[in-house]
Amino acid sequence: MKTNDVILQTTTKLVFFIIFLFSIHIFFAGHYTPGGGFVGGLLTTGAIILLLLAFDLKTVQKALPFNFTIMTGIGLLLALGTASGSIFFNVPFFTHAFDDFTLPLFGVTSLHTAMIFDAGVFLVVVGSAITIIQSIGGDS
């Protein structure tokens, strides 16, 4: 069946970036205010699913040439690596470290190891959710 979805496709091209940027914002907002890796990841997944709806699986794969299983793996490694870092300092697992740094452009910024963990969560959520969608959608 050939459908004319010019409006959907054009809007999607625009909206995708808005959702994606918003998800990045949510991700960084995560530590002291609502947000974080999981929600950010879900938003990004939502954006990619919108792409999948507007275009087909092949086009999206060409536009985003990632292996999403590998992405899940990298995310898990990041999360586990951050948590295991504490083993080398002989403090309990998952102990998180943070400090204020003065960065160019941003000024005084508070940096946490928890953020690297959250980045891992972000990648796991996107990777696994898209893998599931692909495995259902790829068949029909």
């Binding site: 899940t72 793996g73 586990l80 295991s84 002989n90 697992f93």
Partner: peptide
């Protein structure tokens, strides 16, 4: 080594993640 009791949990997890990279 106060984290010793976690090793039997972390190590299989770590290797499981590694294996995801070698699917074929």
């Amino acid at each position: 080594m106060i984290n010793l009791l976690l090793f039997p949990i972390i190590l299989p997890f770590f290797f499981a993640i590694l294996l995801l990279f070698f699917k074929e």
